[in-house]
Structures are given as structure tokens and as C-alpha cells.
């Protein structure tokens, strides 16, 4: 008999902000995360920061993943983190991926981005890191016991 409860799903929002249309990476990630058992909410291209934050809140995701390819990652990170804070959702960790120069990784982390994945990062590594990030967060917001 199948147990009525398997392990808790990790719910991730995969989003693209602004007008950058390179969605190959975002889609590969979305699929790989699904295959790894995640619940993925995909909001499509051309989202504003406000839309991303609203979606994250309404869907109550565990992690927000932003995939970016046009060089505006600082701008996006700053505004996103600020907006999350203002909306009472500052506890939702944000991770970023895409064509981000290595030199920008540390400054992004310092701003509060939880993790930055550079191109070529194996998906298995991304999955593992997201699982860690989600489990770190569990104590913060305990889920119903099963």
C-alpha cells in the first residue's frame, strides 16, 4: 500500500524578469526540477518584479529562482529583495542563475541573494543546493506534521 504522505514537496517559482527572452536555461531547470520531484511554478517571460513577488506569495513557494541573461542582475536582485521584504515575504530565499559574471557573484550574495548558479553548473548540484536551502528554511516556518 502506498503511504498517503511521501516527503514534503519543495515548491519553486522559476521566473524571468523584464524583457530578456532567453528561456532555454529556465525551461531546462524547470524540467530538471520537476524530474527531481519539485513542484515548479513557471510564470513565463516578461514579468515585472511586482508580478514575481505576487506569484511567490500567492503560491507560497519555498524558493524563488530568477534566471537572467541580459546583464541587469544587480538591478533585479536589489528590487526583488526589497519588494519581498516590504511584502512580508523577506524570508523566501532568492537564487539566481544565467549569464552572470563570476566577479558579480560575491556582491550578489552580499546583497542577500542566497545562491548564484553560473552557466555550466550541473543540474544535480543545483537540485542538491535547492534541497539544502529549502530544508534550512523548514525550521523557520514549520509545516504541518504528517
Amino acid at each position: 500500500m502506498q503511504s498517503p504522505r511521501t516527503t514534503r514537496r519543495i515548491k519553486v517559482l522559476v521566473a524571468k524578469v523584464g524583457l530578456d527572452g532567453h528561456d532555454r536555461g529556465a525551461k531546462v531547470i524547470a524540467r530538471a526540477l520537476r524530474d527531481a520531484g519539485f513542484e515548479v511554478v513557471y510564470t513565463g517571460l516578461r514579468q515585472t518584479i511586482d508580478q514575481v513577488v505576487a506569484a511567490a506569495i500567492q503560491e507560497d513557494v519555498d524558493i524563488i529562482g530568477i534566471n537572467q541573461h541580459e546583464g541587469s542582475h544587480f538591478h533585479i536582485a536589489r528590487k526583488l529583495l526589497q519588494k519581498l521584504e516590504e511584502s512580508g515575504a523577506g524570508d523566501i530565499p532568492v537564487v539566481m542563475g544565467g549569464s552572470i559574471p563570476l566577479v558579480d557573484v560575491e556582491p550578489l550574495r552580499a546583497m542577500g541573494v542566497k545562491e548564484v548558479f553560473l552557466p555550466g553548473t550541473p543540474i544535480a548540484e543545483i537540485v542538491k543546493r535547492l534541497e539544502e536551502i529549502a530544508s534550512e528554511r523548514k525550521h523557520l516556518a514549520p509545516r504541518a506534521k504528517g
Binding site: R34, F38, V40
Partner: peptide, 12 residues
């Protein structure tokens, strides 16, 4: 398995 939820993108 996991899932990808895409209905939302038409309502964003």
C-alpha cells in the same frame, strides 16, 4: 513525481 504548473502564466 514533481510537476510544472503553467496555467498561472496566462493569468499573470
Amino acid at each position: 513525481s514533481g510537476s510544472i504548473m503553467g496555467d498561472r502564466l496566462r493569468m499573470q
